[in-house]
Simulated scan of single mutants.
Amino acid sequence: MAHPDVSLSQIVQQYLDYLAYNKRYSKHTIDAYRRDIQRLVQTLDDHGHSHWAEAQADTIRAAMIGARKTGLAPKSIQRILSSWRSFFTYLLQQRMVKLNPVEGIQAPKSPHKLPNSIDPDQMSQMLNAPIASDDPMALRDKAMVELTYSCGLRLAELASLNIFDIDMTDASLVVTGKGNKSRQLPIGHYAIAAVKTWLQQRPQLKCFDANALFINHRGRRMGVRGIQMRMAKMAALHGQHMHPHMLRHSFASHLLQSSGDLRAVQELLGHSNISTTQMYTHLDYQHLAKVYDKAHPRAQAKSQLKEKPKHD
C-alpha cells in the first residue's frame, strides 16, 4: 500500500511531525496517535486498499464493529475514531484524499457509571467531628467541604470564589460557572457557620490576595490541586475517600432523591441542558435496579437460584 508521490511511512511521519511542531502535542499523545494510525494502516491493508483515497466509511465501520467484538472498550474505540478522523482531516488539507470516511461514524456510547457519592450519615459524621479552634487550615478545609456540598459547586467555581461573592445576611452566594454564566445559590446554615468561623481565623495568615475566599498557608488563593489534596487528607482522617466532584455528585443525588425536582437541581448545578441533569435520575434508577436484583428472591437469574434439597 503506497501513495503515488510519497511513501506511507513518510506520510505518517509528516503527520506526526505536524502534531509535534504545529499542534505542540506531548510525546505521550503523539505515541497514542502513532499506534492508532498503525491500526488504520492494518485495517486498510486487510481490506485490500492500496492507498488512503480508497478508504470508505463501510471499511471504517466494519473495523469498529470488529474491535467491539474483540472486547475493546467504547472509550478506546472513541479515541481511535477521533485519531482517524483527525488524520483524514490532515490528508484532506494536503489534498491526498477527497473525503473523510470517518465523518459521521458514531462510536459506541460508554455505559453510564453510577458516580461515587458519600452517604449522608458518613458526611454528617465527618463534618460534625470536633476541630481545634486554633487550627486555621482545618477550619478552612471544613468550610470548603461544607460550601461545596451545600451548593453543589464545581472545583473551579470553589477555587475562584471571592469573599464579596457571599452574602452572609441573605445566606447566598453568586458563582460564575461554565460559559462565564453566573448563578445565585442558597447556602445552608452549616456552611454559613463554617465559612464565618474560617473568616474569623483568616486574618492570622499572611495574605497576598485580599479578595480570595480560601487562601493557602503562603497567603495565596487556593488552587484546584491544593483543594483536592486538602479534601482528600481531611477525608482520610476519618477513613473516607473524597474529592470535590464527589461532593457535587452527592449534592445532586441527595437533593434529587429528597425533592424529585429535576428542574431545580438543574438550575442549582448550572447545567445549560436538562439532559445532563437527567443523568442523575437514570443512575438513581440503575442503583435501585441493582438493589432489587440482589434482594428480591424472584428477580434473581436462574443460574443464581439453587434447587432446594429434597428430603425423603
Rank of each mutant, 00 (worst) to 15 (best):
D170H: 14
K181N: 09
L199S: 08
I163V: 15
G188A: 08
L185M: 09
A171N: 15
Q200H: 12
Y190E: 10
V195G: 02
K178R: 11
R183W: 03
F164G: 04
T176W: 00
V175T: 13
S172F: 01
L158A: 07
S182T: 12
G188H: 03
Y190N: 11
M168K: 11
G179V: 09
K196Q: 13
A193E: 14
A159S: 13
L158H: 04
Q200M: 10
L199Y: 06
V174K: 15
V175N: 03
A171M: 14
L199V: 04
I163W: 00
L155Y: 01
S172R: 15
S172I: 03
D165M: 11
M168G: 03
S160L: 00
L161T: 02
W198F: 10
A156K: 07
D167A: 12
L161N: 04
D167F: 08
I192R: 11
L158F: 04
H189S: 13
T176Y: 00
L161F: 06
G188M: 04
K196C: 06
K181E: 05
N180R: 15
V195P: 06
E157I: 02
A194W: 02
Q184F: 07
I187L: 08
A193N: 13
L155N: 01
N180V: 02
A191L: 03
S182H: 05
F164W: 09
A193H: 13
F164T: 14
V175R: 03
S160Q: 14
A171W: 11
G179P: 06
D167N: 15
K178Y: 10
G179H: 08
A193V: 00
A193R: 14
Y190K: 09
H189I: 11
V175I: 08
I166C: 09
D167C: 10
I187W: 01
D167K: 09
A156Y: 04
A191T: 05
R183P: 02
N162H: 07
I166Y: 09
H189N: 10
N180Q: 13
Q200C: 04
E157M: 02
L185I: 01
I166V: 15
K196I: 13
I163G: 14
A156C: 03
I187F: 01
S172K: 13
A159I: 07
K178E: 12
T169C: 06
